[in-house]
Amino acid sequence: MEKNINLTLKVWRQNSPKDKGGFETYQVKDISTGSSFLELLDVLNEQLINEGKEPVAFDHDCREGICGMCSLYINGHPHGPDSEITTCQLHMRKFNDGDTIWIEPWRSAGFPVIKDLIVDRDAFDKIIAAGGYVSVNTGGVPDGNAIPIPKDNADESMDAASCIGCGACVAACKNGSAMLFVSAKASQLALLPQGKVEAARRAKNMVARMDDLGFGNCTNTGACEVECPKGISIAHIARLNREYLSAKLQD
């Protein structure tokens, strides 16, 4: 059953990208365990505004785990302690009365802090721009049923395509690598006949862009897969590596 709990929050505050930043401590009372984690932050912000202080800035939008906007490093885990969910789907029933909760932004060279808990994830868009698509224009395409696709391939492609681009994989990685993100897109498209045509070129261009943007190398620790809110498998990294190697061999 739902009950109310009291908590101590240690929240990262940083006014601007150049500001040094640090933790502030806040007390919140009577939080319903049926509330979501972001509703906890709403309550905190209402409290801060009523005290004449500036609310905590954090990214969020759909609040149903699909837009990829919310982030947060909660008690040392991207998207908090629960598995296969985003922060907006994390509920307060996962915490106990009297707990202290540490809340930080993503920490990665690829994602500079903008304000408080908000980071800049433009790098992900730039990686997609480098090749994360099938090069077709609007119109002039064949009928949707012209190319049959084995159900298993379509399903596996969909598994990869369920990436929400939140950046938890990068935040979880000790090297700050974006390989899970890159491989999920490369794999989704390479598994389908319409994307297979330019698979090698795509792999090469996306990896090159990722390296340019300052993301680290993948050393197969598997932390990204564990923390991914959508359960994206590191098997896609292996597939990307194969595409990449064959592309390089052809050079």
Binding site: V136, G139, P142, G144, A154, D155, Q188
Partner: peptide, 17 residues
């Protein structure tokens, strides 16, 4: 047709359609 060409992984039957 457009979305299929873009690589949108729509659900498929066992026959591939």
């Amino acid at each position: 047709d457009q979305c299929v060409a873009q690589g949108v992984p729509f659900a498929r039957e066992y026959g591939g359609l």
